[in-house]
Design a protein around this nucleic acid. Structure first.
Length: 571
RNA sequence: GCACCUAUAGCUCAAUUGGAUAGAGUCGCGCACUACGAAUGCGAAGGUUUGGGGUUCGAGUCCCUAUAGGUGCACCA
């Protein structure tokens, strides 16, 4: 597609400005009010260099941009150069590109030949998969799709919380009060009960804590009995996690969690010592970070066992050496901001300069109306329940509306689960939010079902138009004179933006930017649908309009795909 | 106490990174299903961008400060 900002920058560019084309391109903006133009160039910043009043500069620029093929009108308004693009050229350019690219529309090859790692989901073994986990899981999955779309080879890592003192406690609890059948029947629930019981019992019997630490040390030393139990707990938990991953259609390339790095740590302990970074403090080994305004990083406990700072250091180095990433992205809650700053600083002090390519992508807290989530106090909403209820709700809606959905079961899954994912990805990640059933089960307004609905409606139009018309539209036998209306043009404009929005989302690690754009496309499609009757008798007009319908459907489908949401043909 | 994050319409959120008259959805109100899907559309209403200073041609956006909420701060992850 024509890169209008770039075209404008090329025209405006001249040596005396002291700016390169890329800088000028970044100055080109889209006016908030489209009646002022499709693109605008503010001249304030040039005033200093050129020693001329901004409006005069604007005037001189206007003279250099001819009203030719690309622009139908260029005018100066105060310090701005306002440009209106040639609608016919623009609509043609967009439609032909989308039809040609099809499923690849929105993609680019910026990342070709390069790898990024996305670490996401990372639940703790033997703990329930609850609504709090949806954020990392769904944001990470979307970032994977977004980075893949801009050409990167993406490695998806589920950094399981499968190690640490907690497993010492779990094993101790199992030995005291557990039995095999209960665990097999309902692994996570049972293991959680043991874990909770441990915390109650330890109040009156502090020796249990010592026992747990010893047990964990045995696990670290890979003693057979402990290792066997640990592996069993892990496998049973994973089975339950995968039920949810399957519903969400999410996969991973690696499940190497914390345990995987357990035997890779001595190397770093040595490096830290050799560099004189390791300090003894109250029996523990620390790296002092006071001069960087941080608390010390705890490397090993007084009993010699390691902590998660150490494991994250080992993990980062392992990943660099294994995958040679350009970027190593961690989708982890903002509560861990300090932790990430700490271990990254330690790596920097060790001289690993690539640590600058490790990015923590934080997100805000999910709480319940009753307060912050707490499995031990029963304040928890399971993700699986949320998905199931969304599916049930969708079934009710389908029955009530008596729609033309073919397979109710399948459609309800697409729409219900899509609604939950969409909701999660519609706000900026850093925002905290309070989980609400009303909100997650609301399908009106700027929601997943709304976007899917418009996609289904476009599909419906294609079915009604018939194969012949669709084929001609896809064969680009299009008379663009039929697509000159304001609503057709605005729709094309929103579709046009998708590829650049994908890049922005990648660069900012922010899927919600894509979410917002597909809402814009759906809204513009709706307006086009309202303003113009599409299945007209005039064959050529019908084909032209169908081409725009197809382009809209493609854009919606691809956009939803980047969020990890399916686009039903009927619903 | 210190550090980081957040604060925009009744509610949930945007605002092209410092640009023109701050936009959507939702709630409530009033409309529209006898051409293509009402999970929809249209209209009106809704604002001292938390308060106060500052920086400059220009500030919701940057700086300072106050307030409110959240998160984190040594042997859990």
């Amino acid at each position: 597609m024509i890169d209008f900002k770039n075209e404008i920058a090329k025209i405006i560019y001249s040596d005396e400005l002291g700016l390169d084309i890329e800088e000028i391109k970044n100055m080109v903006e889209v006016p908030t009010d489209s009646s002022m133009g499709d693109y605008a160039f503010p001249c304030f910043r040039l005033a200093k260099v050129m020693r001329k009043a901004p409006p005069l500069i604007a005037k001189s620029i206007v003279l250099r941009i001819s009203e030719d093929e690309l622009f139908s009108e260029v005018k100066q308004v105060n310090a701005y150069v306002n440009m209106f693009v040639n609608k016919k050229v623009f609509v043609k350019d967009v439609i032909e590109e989308v039809i040609e690219d099809g499923k690849n529309f929105g993609k680019s090859n910026i990342g070709e030949g390069k790898s990024v790692i996305v670490e996401y989901s990372s639940p703790n073994i033997a703990k329930p998969f609850h609504i709090g986990h949806i954020r990392s899981t769904v944001i990470g999955n979307s970032l994977y799709k977004i980075y893949e779309a801009i050409g990167y080879n993406v490695i998806r890592i589920n950094h399981l919380g499968d190690y640490g003192t907690q497993f010492g406690k779990m094993i101790v609890a199992y030995r005291h009060w557990g039995n095999e059948e209960d665990v097999k029947a309902s692994p996570i629930q049972t293991l959680l009960e043991y874990y909770t019981k441990f915390h109650i019992e330890v109040e009156s019997n502090p020796k249990l804590d010592d026992e747990a630490r010893e047990t964990f040390t045995k696990l670290e030393n890979r003693e057979e009995e402990e290792l066997k139990l640990w592996k069993w707990f892990r496998d049973e938990s994973l089975k339950e996690f995968y039920r949810v991953y399957k519903m969400l259609d999410i996969e991973f390339d690696s499940l190497d969690g914390e345990s995987f790095y357990s035997d890779r740590m001595p190397r770093f302990l040595k490096e830290l010592k050799d560099r004189g970074l390791m300090v003894d403090s109250q029996g523990a080994q620390i790296v002092d970070l006071e001069e960087y305004g941080m608390n010390p990083a705890l490397i090993t406990k007084s009993d010699g066992s390691t902590l998660y700072v150490t494991r994250d250091i080992a993990a980062a180095v392992y990943r660099k050496e294994t995958y040679d990433f350009e970027k190593n992205i961690y989708v982890v809650a903002s509560q861990q901001n300090l932790h990430f700053k700490q271990w990254m600083k330690v790596l920097e002090l060790l001289g690993y300069d690539w640590v600058k390519d490790c990015v923590h992508v934080p997100f805000g807290l999910v709480s319940l109306e009753e307060g912050t989530m707490s499995t031990r106090h029963g304040r928890v909403v399971f993700l699986e329940d949320v998905l199931n209820r969304a599916i049930e709700k969708t079934k009710d809606v389908i029955k009530e509306k008596d729609t033309n959905a073919d397979d109710i079961e399948e459609t309800a899954k697409m729409v219900g689960i899509g609604a939950v994912i969409f909701q999660e990805l519609s706000n900026g990640r850093i925002k905290d939010y309070v989980f609400s059933w009303d909100k997650v089960l609301n399908f009106d307004g700027e929601t997943g079902p709304y976007v899917q609905y418009n996609h289904a409606r476009a599909a419906s139009l294609m079915r009604k138009a018939g194969e012949e018309v669709v084929n001609k539209a896809e064969g680009k036998e299009i008379e663009y004179d039929y697509l000159t209306s304001e609503s057709a043009y605005n729709l094309a404009k929103e579709i046009y933006r998708l590829p650049e929005v994908v890049k922005e989302a990648a660069y900012k690690y922010e899927p919600s930017i894509v979410t917002r754009q597909i809402v814009n496309i759906a809204q513009a499609f709706n307006r086009f649908y309202r303003d113009e009757y599409i299945l007209v008798d005039n064959e050529k007009e019908k084909i032209a309009k169908m081409a725009l319908v197809i382009a809209s459907k493609t854009a919606l489908n691809n956009g939803l795909g980047l969020l990890g949401i399916k686009a039903p043909e009927k619903m």
